[in-house]
């Protein structure tokens, strides 16, 4: 399935709500090493039925959008507070990114028919030396309404698993 999609930055907002008598939502906290203690409602969690390649046991994540890190979005494991990935919305890397969602992945997130609103993030690698790169061959695709995610790996060579990131002013 190919299609257009729009990432909305609103999709990433991690809503931290103060405890109040009116609010009866279940809120969980997670003590992360890098982002302090974060609070999230269970509905904000994203379920990854297949985990991620290399991390098949990691089934629950949340996206964190901190103004200090923008445009990077953090994909934080809810299972392991010490595990996260830095990601970028694919359109920040290639404004005309053409998503190819194979049938097997479409089924995992329940995307049928007309492409629903999907969040498409490329995992960024920042090596000790050398340029940071983004995986455009296998982006993380999140069905916001279903709260389901998968890393949808293409079967063509149109995009790279290690696309070098163009940085203003170098790194």
């Amino acid at each position: 399935m190919r299609g257009r999609f729009r990432n909305s930055r609103k999709s990433f907002q991690l809503q931290v709500k103060a405890n109040s008598a009116e609010e009866k939502e279940a809120v969980t906290t997670l003590d992360t090493a890098s982002f302090g203690t974060i609070s999230y409602r269970d509905e904000e969690a994203i379920h990854f039925p297949l985990g991620l390649p290399g991390f098949e046991e990691e089934r629950r994540f949340i996206t964190i959008d901190l103004s200090s890190l923008q445009p990077l979005i953090v994909l934080q494991s809810l299972n392991r507070p010490d595990l996260f990935f830095l990601t970028l919305p694919v359109e920040d890397i290639d404004a005309r990114y053409d998503l190819k969602l194979l049938e097997e992945y479409r089924q995992v997130i329940g995307a049928r028919g007309i492409l629903p609103r999907l969040v498409v993030l490329a995992i960024v690698s920042v090596p000790e030396t050398g340029p940071p790169t983004a995986n455009l061959l296998g982006p993380v695709v999140i069905h916001s309404a279903h709260r389901l995610g998968v890393q949808a790996i293409r079967d063509d060579s149109r995009y790279s698993v290690a696309h070098p990131l163009a940085l203003q002013g170098g790194l």
Partner: peptide, 16 residues
């Protein structure tokens, strides 16, 4: 391509 992504994920995973 899935093996490549597996390797990329292992390199990209962070704790800090």
């Amino acid at each position: 391509e899935v093996r490549w992504t597996e390797l990329a994920n292992r390199g990209a995973a962070r704790s800090d």
